[in-house]
Write a protein that binds this DNA or RNA. Structure first.
Length: 268
DNA sequence: ATACCGACCTGTCAGC
DNA sequence: TGCTGACAGGTCGGTA
């Protein structure tokens, strides 16, 4: 579900609501839970810890924690359908709730994930994510990332070891804005095209963050609110509809195993 | 080293 | 109404 703008929105909301709060106790479901660290270790790390900060790294939510034993981090990846919600304890627990952290303030932090593609882990400190931050990468570094890559540019944008945080929606939207076909080999982009893609990507991500992310089917932020960037999508989810620039019907194909939307006339 | 493709899960929706 | 299959915002591991 969530890509960079959605995770950014969620992390900001969580920071606003739980920073400074303390985790009193943790409940973890016991059947095939989406854990990268052992459940006992997660519980031991979270219980008693204070949440200093909640922030985004790539598509991960990072909780910076401090406790008597020292600093640690709780790292959450929401996968396709994960949600991290702040709820009053009397609120009914959604099905597919895998973790509940009870806070000193009386509220609960709940991790819900029907498809269980999400991942939870804890570590001592220093999580940096797999790749480079798309909002911070310079044009020079951006060009360097794609140099010599034979993969389609869309696949390269989705590769988290290169840039982390870009997913299917924002890959399609930024390629549309840059006027580049998703199947073009990454190495075939001219300097000018790379520059267009670099700024298109950063613009799209910033606009999406300003809109609170894209709610296509069920994304909601930490407050349970939907985003509204889906109203500004030009390519993603618009197969068969007229291009907003030239009226040519948007095409849908499969690239790098993912549904891919583009304008056959505007994108070269 | 790089790229592709199926697997991992559940829910939803279109078509029969 | 109910079944089947395709598809969904993501990643991983095996294979070529």
């Amino acid at each position: 579900m969530p890509e960079l703008p959605e995770v950014e929105t969620i992390a900001r909301g969580l920071h606003k609501r739980v920073a400074g709060d303390r985790i009193e106790s943790v409940w973890i479901g016991n059947k095939r839970e989406p854990l990268k660290s052992p459940a006992a270790k997660i519980a031991a790390t979270l219980e008693g810890a204070r949440v200093d900060q909640v922030r985004r790294v790539g598509k991960h939510i990072v909780f910076d924690l401090s406790a008597r034993k020292g600093a640690s981090q709780w790292i959450v990846h929401l996968g396709m359908t994960g949600r991290m919600l702040v709820a009053a304890p009397e609120t009914e627990t959604a099905s597919h709730t895998h973790l509940v952290a009870r806070l000193e303030s009386g509220r609960e932090l709940r991790f819900v994930d029907p498809r269980r593609f999400g991942r939870l882990e804890v570590q001592s400190a220093g999580f940096t994510g797999p790749g480079t931050e798309p909002l911070q990468v310079s044009l020079e570094d951006f060009v360097q990332l794609f140099k010599g890559r034979n993969a389609p540019i869309k696949g390269a944008l989705l590769n988290q070891k290169l840039l982390h945080g870009v997913g299917n929606i924002y890959a399609d939207e930024s390629l549309f804005r840059a006027g580049i076909r998703p199947r073009r080999r990454a190495s075939s982009l001219t300097r000018q095209e790379s520059a267009r893609l670099h700024s298109a990507l950063q613009e799209v991500l910033k606009e999406a963050i300003a809109a609170g992310g894209s709610s296509v089917s069920d994304y909601v932020d930490a407050e349970g609110e939907e985003g509204f960037f889906q109203l500004q999508h030009c390519a993603y989810g618009r197969a068969g509809e007229p291009c907003l620039v030239c009226k040519t019907p948007i095409k849908k194909i499969v690239v790098a195993g993912r549904g891919t939307h583009y304008c056959p006339k505007c994108q070269k």
